[in-house]
Each structure stands twice: as structure tokens, then as C-alpha cells.
Amino acid sequence: AEKTGIVNVSSSLNAREGASTSSKVIGSLSGNTKVTIVGEEGAFYKIEYKGSHGYVAKEYIKDIKDE
């Protein structure tokens, strides 16, 4: 099942092309942005936001229960 997560940073969080800190940054998400978690790979979540996919470090995403 898809989960919703909240970007848990004070400034912004980089979204990357792949599940690695050396992957190209494809965008950034500001704190408290809601994202859909579609998968996980190592220390990263694969997320969907406004129709695009990217990878973000798990430690900066807070899971919330689907309402």
C-alpha cells in the first residue's frame, strides 16, 4: 500500500534521480511537503510528488498514517 510521508526538514530536501547521494539532484522539496512513498531502496524512499518520481533520504521523511 502507498504511504504518505512528510518532508521533515527546516529548509529543503533534495530529491534525486537514484537511491544514492551521488545521484543527480532533480528537485527540492520544502519542509512539511506531503509526498507519496511508493517504494524503498536502502536508505532511500522512492517518492511521487506532483506526478514525478524521485529518491529522498529516509531519515528526512516522517511517515504519517493514511487518513
Rank of each mutant, 00 (worst) to 15 (best):
K3F: 09
I47D: 04
V25Q: 04
H53K: 04
S23H: 07
V38D: 02
I6C: 13
G27N: 02
A57E: 15
I64T: 07
T33K: 04
V38N: 01
A19P: 15
A19C: 07
E2F: 15
N32Y: 10
L13C: 15
L13E: 03
K46Y: 10
G18D: 09
G31K: 14
S20H: 09
T33I: 07
A43H: 09
Y60Q: 05
A57T: 05
D63L: 15
G42T: 01
T36N: 10
A57D: 12
K50S: 07
K3H: 08
V56A: 00
Y49P: 00
G39Y: 03
S10F: 08
T33W: 06
A19Y: 03
A57Q: 14
S10P: 11
Y55V: 00
I64A: 07
K65W: 09
S28W: 13
K24D: 05
Y60F: 13
Y49H: 03
Y49D: 01
D63Q: 12
S30C: 14
G31P: 15
K3V: 09
K62C: 11
E59W: 06
V35P: 01
D63S: 09
E67S: 13
Y60C: 14
G18N: 10
V25H: 03
V7R: 02
G42D: 07
T33C: 11
L29K: 01
R16Y: 15
G42R: 01
T36S: 07
I64Y: 07
K3N: 04
T4C: 13
Y55A: 01
N8S: 11
L13S: 03
A15N: 02
S22R: 09
I6K: 05
E67Y: 11
D63K: 09
I61Y: 01
I6S: 04
E17D: 09
S52D: 07
V56P: 00
V25T: 06
I61N: 00
Y60S: 08
S28H: 11
S22W: 05
S52I: 14
K58L: 02
G51K: 04
S20I: 07
V7H: 01
E48R: 10
I37Y: 00
Y45A: 05
A43W: 06
I61R: 01
E17Y: 07
G39I: 02
E41P: 00
S12F: 13
I64N: 05
I6G: 02
I61L: 06
I64G: 05
S52K: 13
A15G: 03
A43Q: 11
S30M: 14
A1G: 13
A15Q: 03
K65D: 09
K46V: 10
H53G: 04
T4K: 08
V25L: 06
D66E: 12
Y49R: 00
N8Q: 09
G54F: 12
L13Y: 01
E41T: 07
D63N: 09
S23R: 03
K65Q: 12
V38W: 05
E17K: 07
V38M: 06
I61H: 02
T4D: 03
Y49M: 07
S11D: 12
A1W: 15
V35W: 02
N14T: 11
L29Y: 02
K50I: 05
V7S: 03
E48P: 01
S23F: 05
